[in-house]
């Protein structure tokens, strides 16, 4: 972003990478896949790079409002400084926070999740799919992330993206408004769960495996981690893969 601003360019969108997208080895691949799609399609975009900081979502959900607002205000100052109008992110937590919670602190942007952005690209014919590639005809199930689904009522965009791949989309018993959390939201990603009889991601993974799908599609870095761990726990990593939507599209496009 800094480079573009220095050369007087103002990109159409800001791609908010998020901490997982920047640091988590698995999710970095998602960031790369999404960026390749953007480059291929020729979308004018920028990232903040080292100027980006955590949105503050986990701090706020863990109760630390001060820390949240410090992070938020710093981010808003950066974004307002670059006169950012439109933000796209591959993380539902970042999406929810920037879209719904930054306006109260002076940061109002048009924020969309990458599933919505991909859906737009497909609908506009900018992304032309090759018919599913390795996914063609396979059973794929989609795991709703809470912060995309219930929190923001985005249920169909990710499904439309998957369907565009010419696959068989199979639903889990609990889906859409009734979707079961992967267990990582509300800052749970950053601590061990409380005592109980089972981990939430195992419960959810069992449900996903019960569909007989060969891949579990997600749209959230935390869900990706939790479901991947769940599949490993069930020793099914050889025949069931967990992918982000952007990865599936990029694979199909051969990039």
């Amino acid at each position: 972003m800094a480079e573009m601003a220095a050369s007087g360019e103002s990109p159409e969108i800001l791609f908010w990478v998020g901490c997982a997208g920047s640091f988590d080895d698995r999710y970095k691949a998602v960031t790369q896949a999404f960026v390749k799609i953007l480059n291929k399609v020729g979308v004018s975009f920028a990232v903040l790079g080292p100027e980006e900081a955590c949105t503050g979502d986990p701090a706020r959900r863990a109760g630390n409002e001060f820390l949240f607002q410090m992070q938020a205000v710093a981010n808003i100052q950066v974004m307002n400084g670059y006169e950012v109008k439109k933000v796209v992110t591959a993380c539902p937590h970042c999406f929810n926070t920037i879209k719904n919670e930054y306006p109260a602190l002076g940061g109002t942007y048009d924020v969309i999740h990458h599933s919505q952005f991909l859906q737009e690209l497909i609908n506009k014919g900018k992304v032309v799919l090759q018919g599913g590639g390795e996914f063609k005809g396979k059973k794929i199930t989609f795991h709703d992330s809470c912060y995309l689904g219930r929190a923001n009522d985005v249920y169909e965009a990710p499904r439309d993206v998957i369907k565009a791949l010419d696959v068989e989309l199979v639903e889990m018993k609990r889906c859409r408004t009734k979707g079961l959390c992967c267990g990582a939201g509300g800052a749970q990603m950053f601590k061990e769960p409380e005592n109980g009889k089972k981990d939430i991601n195992i419960e959810r993974t069992e449900e996903a495996l019960a569909t007989g799908a060969s891949a579990i599609a997600v749209g959230c870095p935390f869900c990706l981690t939790m479901m991947t761990d769940g599949v490993k726990n069930k020793e099914r990593e050889h025949d069931v893969k967990v992918y982000d939507l952007a990865e599936m599209i990029a694979k199909d496009m051969g990039i």
């Binding site: 809470c146 219930r150 929190a151 009734k178 079961l180 959390c181 509300g186 800052a187």
Partner: peptide, 8 residues
């Protein structure tokens, strides 16, 4: 502390 804020 056990809540995932999932809104279910």
């Amino acid at each position: 502390n056990a809540c995932t804020s999932c809104n279910a």
